[in-house]
């Protein structure tokens, strides 16, 4: 299984009714990568994450996570992934630890309460443990959301717009957390984001999705080398997004 890529999409397609949202995506992400998935609103990034986290079934092609098919081997896929949606919602009347304990039990963690507390400790927010989630700010909710995504130590972590609702300090903490998870636990990270400054600081590889088509994929180093005239990743993104695939260097 170690030889399988962390994430693999082959001719992946999805339609909502008759509207195509993803058009024949071919993409491979190796273990240990931090992949930034870029694209404007409605490009299909969240749909791709929904398919990879088994929440929806693709209408065409196939996708594998940790070597398991997202449709036929759903249970195996969900055992090896963690997922943080763009807007974290939990049971508001329960404390952070109670919420985390529930998700740990769902993932089959042996000592769920200990895992919940240890994860909050790891994320340096143990003080939130006994407070009810309904009283949290969006930043606090996001941190507990990250805790629920990693408490069972998944091999692949999906983050959908993880910086939503975070203040600048929160964004910095999130960046440090992603780098720590990648370094400490060798977690592969798949991140949908708009925040190009963070992508430049965190990601090892990027992909650009436009109108459901993957129009670019390469490592950060190769990307910077490929566009020597562009000063920032934002400039590169603007150029990639405006160009057709054949126009790119």
């Amino acid at each position: 299984m170690a030889t399988s890529p962390a994430i693999e999409m082959q001719a992946l397609e999805h339609r909502y009714n008759s509207d195509p949202v993803l058009r024949s995506i071919d993409l491979t992400i190796e273990h240990g990568e931090i992949f930034g998935f870029l694209g404007h609103n409605g490009a299909g990034k969240t749909t791709a994450v929904n398919i990879l986290t088994t929440l929806i079934t693709p209408t065409g092609g196939n996708a594998r996570v940790c070597g398991f098919d997202v449709v036929r081997e759903r249970a195996e896929v969900t055992r090896c992934i963690g997922y943080l949606p763009s807007e974290v919602r939990m049971y508001p009347h329960l404390t952070a630890v109670e919420n985390l304990e529930f998700f740990a039990r769902l993932s089959g963690v042996e000592q769920p309460r200990k895992a919940a507390r240890d994860t909050l400790d790891y994320l340096e927010c143990a003080d939130l443990g006994d407070l009810r989630v309904g009283t949290f700010s969006s930043g606090m909710r996001q941190r507990v959301g990250i805790a629920q995504a990693i408490l069972h130590q998944p091999r692949v972590l999906f983050l959908d717009e993880p910086t939503t609702g975070l203040d600048p300090m929160g964004v910095r903490q999130l960046r440090e957390t992603i780098l720590r998870l990648n370094a400490d636990l060798q977690m592969t990270v798949f991140m949908n984001t708009h925040l190009l400054s963070e992508v430049a600081k965190v990601c090892t590889t990027i992909g650009v999705l436009s109108h459901g088509e993957l129009i670019y994929k390469d490592s950060i180093e190769a990307t910077v080398a490929r566009f020597p005239d562009e000063a920032t990743l934002e400039d590169i993104y603007a150029r990639v997004d405006a160009a057709t695939v054949g126009d790119l260097p």
């Binding site: 088994t54 929440l55 249970a75 969900t78 997922y83 919602r89 769902l106 629920q148």
Partner: peptide, 11 residues
């Protein structure tokens, strides 16, 4: 939206 988190687990 809690269901999103629940069903991304092996249940």
């Amino acid at each position: 939206g809690i269901g999103r988190l629940v069903f991304s687990r092996p249940i």
